[in-house]
Amino acid sequence: MTVTAFHVTPVLAFVDANYRPKIDTNEVDYLFEVPLEFLASPENLSSVAFHIQGKRHRVLSIPYKEHFIWGVTAQIIENLQTQLLLN
């Protein structure tokens, strides 16, 4: 669950190298790729703590080139890192 009370279910899949995505501009501004090796490295993840309505929250972030991955997306990646380290 996110700070804003959304439930998110991430799905991990293998995609054919020849796949060409079609972006729905109502949903996505742009698409970029990040190598799994980069995302799997805990050293690339940082966090900042803050308080909302008296509750402590942690915001995760992963800078990659000119991009800034943060919030629930970074949280999902942190969970993936944990799963990869366990196996």
Rank of each mutant, 00 (worst) to 15 (best):
M1K: 10
M1D: 06
M1F: 02
A5G: 03
A5P: 00
H7S: 00
V8Y: 04
V8G: 06
P10R: 12
V11F: 15
V11D: 01
A13I: 02
A13T: 08
A13L: 11
A13K: 04
A17D: 14
N18F: 04
Y19D: 01
R20Y: 00
P21D: 05
K22H: 13
D24T: 01
D24R: 00
N26G: 02
E27M: 04
E27T: 02
E27G: 00
V28G: 00
V28C: 03
V28S: 00
Y30N: 02
F32N: 09
F32Y: 07
F32R: 05
V34F: 06
L36Q: 07
E37Y: 03
F38P: 08
E43K: 12
L45I: 14
L45F: 10
L45E: 11
S47C: 05
F50Q: 03
I52S: 06
Q53Y: 15
Q53V: 12
G54R: 06
R56F: 12
H57K: 00
H57F: 11
R58P: 02
L60G: 04
S61K: 12
P63T: 07
Y64W: 13
E66A: 08
W70Y: 14
G71I: 03
Q75P: 01
Q75M: 07
I76N: 12
I77S: 03
N79W: 04
N79I: 02
L80C: 03
L80M: 15
T82A: 02
Q83W: 12
L84K: 01
L85N: 07
L86C: 08
L86W: 00
L86I: 09
N87L: 11
